[in-house]
């Protein structure tokens, strides 16, 4: 938990991986869970594959701050290849955690983290997504991982409201909702904390 009961998340991913969607879904679901939220991607020249950053603030009191997040409680890395080019743990609070989409274990991936001493969590989001959704959409698994590790929301309420959010998001293709829900549940179980 950050200052004044506020939890701040920073997402790192690449254009096309659904990072913006995951960031906004987290805000939407937390709001439905009675929290005050801000979910906002950093916008610029949008290109498929380019590094992108997105942010969430979740708190019990309304936050008026409208700057980017420089000292997050949690960092979510949706694309492991970014570890080579981006200092993902820059500014990450000591008691926080970095959550990485990788086939590797926390111990295996830690040497890539430029001296980060704190908690490292991993999830093989690609495998889960490909097994259940049939395609590589790592954003929904990583959203589940962020909720699990941060405990910012209760799992049961999170799942109930995610289903509502999916109905809103996928109003035109409701057939994908069930698989996305299964992806969430599987991801909640599989996160490794190290």
């Amino acid at each position: 938990m950050g200052n004044n009961g506020m939890t701040e998340f920073r997402w790192h991913g690449r254009g096309g991986q659904g990072v913006k969607m995951a960031c906004l879904l987290l805000a939407e679901v937390a709001c439905l869970q009675g929290k005050f939220v801000q979910g906002f991607p950093e916008y610029g020249p949008e290109r498929m594959g380019a590094p992108i950053t997105a942010y969430d603030r979740i708190s019990d009191k309304r936050s008026s701050i409208h700057s980017f997040i420089y000292y997050p409680d949690y960092v979510i890395v949706v694309d492991e290849t970014l570890l080579d080019s981006v200092d993902v743990t820059g500014g990450l609070k000591e008691g926080g955690a970095v959550i990485i989409n990788t086939v590797r274990s926390p111990e295996e991936v830690r040497p890539k983290l430029r001296g980060w001493q704190g908690k490292v969590c991993t999830l093989d989001a690609r495998r889960i997504s490909e097994e259940i959704l049939g395609q590589n959409f790592p954003n929904v698994p990583m959203l589940a991982a962020a909720v699990k590790v941060s405990a910012v929301l209760q799992e049961e309420g999170f799942l109930t409201d995610m289903e509502k959010a999916f109905h809103h998001k996928f109003a035109n293709k409701p057939q994908v909702i069930e698989a996305n829900m299964a992806t969430l549940k599987k991801s909640l179980e599989e996160v490794q904390v190290g």
Binding site: A27, C31, F36, V37, Q38, G39, F40, Y43, R62, H66
Partner: peptide
Amino acid sequence: MDGFITSHSVEN
């Protein structure tokens, strides 16, 4: 309203 900061930020 402020572009992106307000227009694209989801808040309560």
